[in-house]
């Protein structure tokens, strides 16, 4: 029982980081109806960024969290302005194919630059853990989860209380209306994509402390992000976090009690069940 509880707590903590990653996907889709199929690829780029900054400059991931997120914001903003903008409103499969192409380029580019080996970040506290009664919780996971939670909370506040955030929500609700009242939709879309990627940048940086960066993770993370977002409900911010935690726990349990290599099978099974029984996701609005 104590072991199970341990596994679940670890799953929840990892799940929050997953949730932050998925949040980026959810924000982008919720506002622009564009599915970012290169999501996991960007996550892995952020992991490598954190790895390089740590190896070369000795900067710890928690310190570079915000700078990396900011850099990703800029990348996202520019990407939307240049590559993706012409695809907003075009046929779904065309957007999909564009981003599949981008994902293929990124993952193989990473492979070319870094090779297939996994790159761990060995922090001084990598193997420390907090003991609460019979619970032993990895220190890195606690920090990562707290970081993820803080970034997600900041994003919630941004959408709730700032002018730009409200304007973006207006675009998501009613695009024609938003354009009619004079909102610069293109600019807002670019900001949205930037924010989506900032989530990814932060999530990747945090992920680098609990998983070893490697190109082969990219595709798995893309699928993971999709799974989470669909389970939580595409376009629902809370749903992304809830979905992340759910998948985190399911992976942790399956990994511990069955076999680590089969853990994502359970996520996919969960995804299939949700798609069939409640295609709008647990917290999503009716499609």
């Amino acid at each position: 029982m104590a072991i199970t509880l341990n596994v679940i707590v670890q799953g929840v903590l990892t799940g929050l980081v997953y949730g932050l990653m998925a949040l980026g996907l959810s924000v982008i889709f919720g506002v622009m109806r564009v599915v970012n199929f290169a999501h996991g690829e960007f996550t892995v780029i952020a992991m490598y960024a954190a790895f390089i900054l740590f190896e070369m400059l000795g900067l710890q991931p928690l310190i570079v969290l915000l700078p990396i997120a900011a850099a990703f914001f800029v990348v996202g903003y520019l990407l939307q302005r240049s590559l993706i903008s012409p695809f907003v409103g075009r046929a779904e499969h065309e957007q999909f194919i564009l981003l599949v192409g981008l994902a293929t380029v990124i993952v193989n580019g990473l492979l070319l630059v870094f090779g297939p080996d996994a790159r761990p970040i060995n922090l001084p506290y990598s193997f420390d853990s907090y003991a609460i009664g019979s619970l032993f919780i990895d220190k890195v996971r606690v920090y990562a989860a707290l970081g993820a939670f803080a970034v997600a909370a900041a994003l919630f506040l941004f959408f709730r209380y700032t002018r730009t955030g409200t304007a973006i929500r207006a675009c998501a609700d009613n695009l024609t209306g938003a354009a009619v009242v004079g909102l610069d939709v293109k600019q807002l879309y670019a900001v949205t994509f930037g924010l989506g990627l900032a989530c990814v940048g932060a999530a990747g940086t945090l992920m680098a402390t609990i998983a070893d960066a490697s190109p082969s993770l990219a595709q798995a993370y893309t699928l993971l992000a999709f799974t989470i977002v669909i389970i939580g409900g595409l376009g629902s911010m809370v749903g992304a976090l809830v979905g992340g935690v759910l998948i985190g726990v399911s992976e942790a349990l399956a990994g511990f009690y069955i076999q680590p290599s089969m853990k994502s099978m359970f996520s996919f099974a969960l995804l299939i069940i949700v798609l069939v029984l409640r295609p709008q996701g647990l917290l999503g609005r009716r499609l």
């Binding site: 599949v100 192409g101 293929t104 993952v107 492979l111 070319l112």
Partner: peptide, 21 residues
């Protein structure tokens, strides 16, 4: 560099779908 072919395919996809869907 085993990934080069795939990078090329990826770019090809992006170019074609952008310019000549």
């Amino acid at each position: 560099a085993p990934g080069v072919k795939l990078i090329f395919y990826g770019l090809m996809l992006m170019v074609i779908i952008s310019l000549r869907p």
